[in-house]
């Protein structure tokens, strides 16, 4: 089962490698990982998308929590939450037809074209995993994808619940 874990931890050298090391050491799976400092520069926030049954997930949560650097971990999958991923994709746009189609698809998905080259368009799109997968699928039908990069999922709980100190 797909799970989204949000982790708040000390923004110290080595903190991230402890998390990543733990996942590989204990044969846990990482599907996506996204990390950045929070508004409080002493803290980092990580979102990890992983897979596992309840038993595996319980171990993941406990093992991550056991790390001295980790302040809190929560399983967002268990509650209402918002999750987003950012996609940047560069596609071939050589003909008028391709340019029109790419622009139209981008508008429908509420993405934006952020850069134009002689033969390529670069598009930015935000959404959940399904939306981004669908967008990439349709784009690939219309033109050639030159390069793409995804941020990995970030997530936050809905409502009053917050992951903070």
């Amino acid at each position: 089962m797909r799970r989204i874990l949000a982790i708040l931890l000390e923004n110290e050298p080595g903190s991230l490698s402890r998390i990543v090391g733990l996942f590989s050491q204990r044969a846990f799976n990482i599907e996506t990982l996204s990390v950045a400092p929070t508004e409080d520069a002493s803290l980092s926030r990580i979102t990890i998308v992983t897979k596992g049954d309840d038993r595996v997930l319980e171990q993941i949560v406990k093992q991550v929590n056991k790390l001295i650097d980790v302040i809190k971990i929560t399983d967002l999958t268990e509650r209402n939450h918002v999750e987003r991923e950012l996609l940047l994709v560069k596609v071939l746009a050589m003909t008028d037809k391709a340019r029109t189609e790419v622009t139209r698809i981008t508008e429908i998905f509420r993405g934006s074209i952020v850069d134009i080259g002689k033969q390529v368009y670069t598009i930015e799109l935000t959404g959940d995993v399904e939306k981004i997968n669908a967008f990439i699928g349709i784009l690939a039908n219309e033109t050639e994808i030159i390069e793409s990069v995804r941020s990995g999922t970030v997530g936050i709980a809905r409502g009053e619940k917050a992951l903070r100190i």
């Binding site: 050298p13 080595g14 490698s17 090391g21 733990l22 050491q25 001295i68 650097d69």
Partner: peptide, 16 residues
């Protein structure tokens, strides 16, 4: 050594 020992320590520090 911090990297080498990471899976087998309770914690580690690199004092800079």
């Amino acid at each position: 050594i911090v990297g080498c020992s990471r899976p087998i320590v309770k914690h580690s520090f690199s004092c800079r």
